[in-house]
Design a protein around this nucleic acid. Structure first.
Lengths: 198, 198, 198, 198
DNA sequence: CATGAATGAGATTTCATTCAT
DNA sequence: GATGAATGAAATCTCATTCAT
């Protein structure tokens, strides 16, 4: 019980090193050797804990998705008003992109696997589903309370996520294209404008 | 006289083969050998026409971006009303994703190069800038005509593109998540709702 | 305890195989595959121990230069008279060429890198500098003892090395051109004639 | 008769371009494409005039050897005194190295082929034989006239060539090692000292 | 004569994975 | 558990040579 789970610790250490490698060298330009060096372990031990590189990558995806989910969940928890909750959701989602740009890009890197790796696609779509659901639940509550119009919660949730991803994408390609704070404000207003009863 | 430009033809043939390879095997999982086989030419000739794999990839990016730009430009040309123009813009943009899913995914694959290849980032951001500009010009005209509210055209154009990309992304990860036609309708309404004077 | 330094052993094994390959196929006409085959190892392991082919070649150069230096140094050590020392130096230098013809040719092959590889040039010139210095020191001693004329030691050392290289070169191109023993005798006499007080 | 030999002209043009390429990129680091570009002709035409790259290289060797031979022959022609003739021979030989360093290095590059290409070895050894013979003939005449000691003309000729090559070699590896003019003076004195009756 | 598109063999190099220690 | 030496497949790229035009 008090014995720390060495295996779990080692695995986490390796996964974190992998994230670092992806951040630094890009999704396809790092080697197991790089991971070993970064983690300060031997190459062999990585294959002891992970079946192969794909298996390691799935763990990275789990971690990255999970971390992002946790941040959002934590920030929404303490709020009760549906309007405020949605506002926070949007604000936090945008903020994750800005404050952990590299992390968000690691997440993006998995998008290229849509066609190639069924498992990746499943994890990512489950991750999006979670987001949509937690967001939709808030919208549903708002509708019930009468503060939101009679909208399709799932669709509106999708639009919110879509706006965050799409706006971020353009900004990541060229940060000079707009002031991030400004566009976030505009985006938030537009999204809420579609929800709130006037 | 009857001899067409062999070089241009061959280059195009190779680029098209490369698009096929990316579609089939993924952005990072195809080899020059694959391209050669697909194009029905020898490995050597690819390096005769393209400096290296990166150079070939840039040609692919140019083609894909250009094709998408051309389709949208062609479809908007004949319309004069700003409202109708925006409606068509949104409809066509969404439709490109649906009707040429693989093609759009090839485009997406380049997104992961944000951090790694400066040149890719520049081309993609220029591509987005073109879209935003052509969209913003229509919005500007609508504002001038008084059919649109006093909005920031560039920001609204960004939101439109963002919504198309973001909505498509979720759908590409899981087509069962919503009926594409339905979500497109909802998205269009929301976007126009933010623009049109009521 | 009984485990010798695997890395050093393997590196030496590969370097020796490379010397064999250069001897057999020529400086520019052997492949890493050839080295692997000759050393009885896999292609991959060569790149594990050496950064690349250039790096391997530098190790070959180091070995060849070092070996030649060591032979000469060892043979001169036990002698004290400057005249005898110079005689031995000349004799041994000529003898190395004759008895390890291929080895000397490997050495020669690096000469063509004067223009191309700065690092090779530096190593070779340092190698020559060592030779000149050790030879010049003997001459200096001879001058001090009054057995040699008042000559410039460095220049005379250069002439000695030059004669060995130049004479060997002609012989390597056509062994029938002269009896090596004879020309060595003539060369030695000429060189000593320039040094010794009469 | 008045029709200029187009073929010979073209061949010469290509050979000269090849010398340029070797000078610039090194003996083994230039391609037929480089030669074509440098000569301003197509790749195909080179293979029309030369069987293959080896054949072209042999022509280069012929040219370089011949040019050096011609310069020396021309400079010795007008002189009658054996002592002066030898002095000029030595001076001119050293001067060729200094004034056409790159050219001399192209010549040197062929040395690596000793083991690999029988034909190269034959041409180079014939080239050296010519030098030795023309030098030996002068020495013989000097001996006959009684101005030179009773030496073996071929051996002394060899020593002269050897000294030029060997001294030049050290200098090419490190020009700072000695003042070329100085070492040439020392070398000349030593060589003549061995020949001239005192 | 001349061109340059096309080929295909082969070279260097990288790297996930295995396995004896 | 842990190491790192070793493998071998595969990838990119180069280039002499050929040949239809």
């Amino acid at each position: 019980m008090s014995k720390p789970d060495v295996a779990a610790e080692r695995k986490d250490q390796i996964v974190r090193a992998t994230v670092d490698c992806i951040t630094k060298h890009g999704y396809h330009n790092f080697s197991m050797q790089d991971v070993a060096r970064t983690a300060g372990v031997s190459k062999g031990i990585i294959h002891y804990y992970f079946l192969n590189k794909d298996d390691l990558m799935m763990s990275v995806l789990d971690k990255v998705s999970g971390d992002i989910e946790n941040i959002i969940a934590a920030d929404m928890e303490s709020i009760s008003s549906p309007i405020e909750k949605i506002k926070v959701f949007i604000a936090v989602a945008f903020d994750i992109v800005r404050s952990t740009k590299e992390y968000y890009q690691v997440n993006m890197d998995f998008w290229t696997q849509i066609n190639q790796k069924k498992e990746v696609r499943q994890v990512v779509s489950r991750h999006y589903a979670k987001f949509r659901d937690s967001c939709a639940k808030v919208i549903e509550e708002g509708v019930k309370q009468g503060v939101f119009r009679q909208v399709n919660p799932q669709h509106q949730a999708s639009l919110i996520l879509a706006t965050v991803d799409g706006v971020s994408l353009q900004w990541l390609f060229d940060e000079a294209v707009y002031d991030y704070t400004e566009i976030v404000k505009t985006a938030s207003e537009s999204l809420l404008n579609n929800l709130v009863v006037k």
